[in-house]
Design a protein around this nucleic acid. Sequence first.
DNA 1: TTAATTGATATCAATTTAGTATCAGTTTTA
DNA 2: TAAAACTGATACTAAATTGATATCAATTAA
Lengths: 155, 155
Amino acid sequence: MKVLTKKTDYAIRALLMLAAKKGSYISTKAISAEQDMPYQFLRGVLQEMIRHGLITSKEGVQGGFMLEKDPDEISVKQIIEIFQGEVQVSECMFRKQICINRSRCVLRHEIMRIEQVVSGEFQKITIGGLLRKLTAANSAKPALNESDKSSSETT
Amino acid sequence: MKVLTKKTDYAIRALLMLAAKKGSYISTKAISAEQDMPYQFLRGVLQEMIRHGLITSKEGVQGGFMLEKDPDEISVKQIIEIFQGEVQVSECMFRKQICINRSRCVLRHEIMRIEQVVSGEFQKITIGGLLRKLTAANSAKPALNESDKSSSETT
DNA sequence: TTAATTGATATCAATTTAGTATCAGTTTTA
DNA sequence: TAAAACTGATACTAAATTGATATCAATTAA
Ligand code: FES
Ligand code: FES
């Protein structure tokens, strides 16, 4: 059971880069190269995020994308919802004869409770929070933006 | 983001029926008709559950499937793992330059924590527990097995 | 003017999910 | 003993989703 798709994955990583260099434009090419994501695919992901107001763009030479919202206001939940739709365990898992009265369906309650929990966990995680943890862990080293080849471990 | 696939869905519902009539054999045909699931597809699901020791079968006339394990010992997590693989948020979301030292990757910690939470929630839910809630909600009415057409609401 | 960029789409390939079909073997029962 | 009701095992197909690529027009800095 895979929870996050590539789009969500790439989106989060791109946002982390943009958050690390908040205020300046970064091109798709730069992000794609740095994070090793397929260029055209990433472009689609970035454009989708514009439509949802997370980032803005500037065309032409020296153009690129810039973070629009406060990193602490961007949750992983939001990103999942953009690229994978709302968190739902099962549309209506037991829609047939099992539940005599659907409006009082207990299984539904159970399912919705999990949805709340899962959803809540993803909401807790923000781009801002992730970035702080990242930079803290990477100490004084330049995070995300510099193509740091000095690191010993990669995979 | 859909969490449960049809296989998992059907498996849970089939197990609920088997648990409700524990000790006797129920045919695929009966389950399929009662729960409105595609016959051949359901057969595959049931056979898979035999392989995982959740149920047993009897061939021939009057044959069918019977619950093998204690309903309280069968968690939704187990069922998900059978049909959708282990719960994993992302294989290794930030496997490239982001993490300077993979073994100390903080994002990974975050991800694994969610995996624990999600996984834990699904583990809490058992077939036995669900069945009790179901029968309690459906009061004295016959649950799951009788094709109860007296119910007013269906969808 | 040219090169570097995004906007907007269209298309394609790969993978996963959902569903169907078939034939052989087993067991009850008429 | 033969037919009917079953499961075992597999092969196959269809649909949906996911992942990736390609193209062309418009914009902007140098
Ligand atoms: S009626 Fe949909 S979950 Fe019970
Ligand atoms: S190195 Fe894989 S999540 Fe950080």
